[in-house]
């Protein structure tokens, strides 16, 4: 098997993995839509307790991370990978602050909106943590063509957040 073949195999494998990930989150989106339809007012009231500014910061971090990992794939420079890494850390920190401010006044997952909020952003956050680990590994161990695969994964996380942010923070 030539090298070209194997990188093509890895790319197909990655896209299939992303399809599986989309289905994983897909269930949550469907559940959210259904329950929200039944409790529209309660959901609208609950979301006012989230900090839009922190959500906005999260969005900015994800988008910047996507930009820098795309540049890392293009230019093959380590500093772009480090930039992606930092974006991931900023994202998690902002999310952490939002969690703290939501938990402090006593909003536990038992209220449905916050249940969805914690599960959806928590699952997404775990994925970002995984992304950080992969990017860090690439930055240390050297990258090459694998960076493109990590980039695909990161872009998927950004895309998911693009849906999560308005759904949880903005839509009234």
């Amino acid at each position: 098997m030539t090298d070209g073949d194997s990188s093509e195999a890895a790319r197909i494998g990655m896209w299939l993995f992303l399809a599986a990930e989309i289905m994983l989150f897909g269930g949550l989106f469907v559940g959210f839509a259904l329950i929200r339809m039944r409790h529209e007012e309660a959901f609208a009231a609950a979301r006012l307790h989230l900090h839009r500014s922190l959500g906005f910061l999260c969005s900015l971090a994800m988008l910047s991370g996507s930009l820098s990992i795309a540049m890392a794939a293009e230019r093959a420079k380590r500093r772009f990978l480090v930039a992606t890494l930092l974006c991931g850390v900023v994202f998690l920190a902002a999310l952490g602050f939002d969690y703290a401010s939501v938990v402090a006044p006593g909003f536990r997952p038992s209220q449905l909106f916050f249940g969805f909020y914690f599960v959806m952003t928590g699952l997404h956050g775990l994925h970002v943590l995984g992304g950080i680990a992969v990017v860090a590994w690439l930055a240390v161990r050297g990258y090459g063509r694998r960076i493109e695969l990590a980039g695909l994964y990161w872009h998927m996380l950004t895309l998911l957040w693009i849906f999560l942010f308005p759904l949880l923070y903005l839509a009234a």
């Binding site: 599986a20 289905m23 994983l24 897909g26 269930g27 949550l28 559940g31 699952l123």
Partner: peptide
Amino acid sequence: VLATPVLGITLVL
């Protein structure tokens, strides 16, 4: 690939 993740999220919930 397409169905198993839905079980995954169901079990998480």
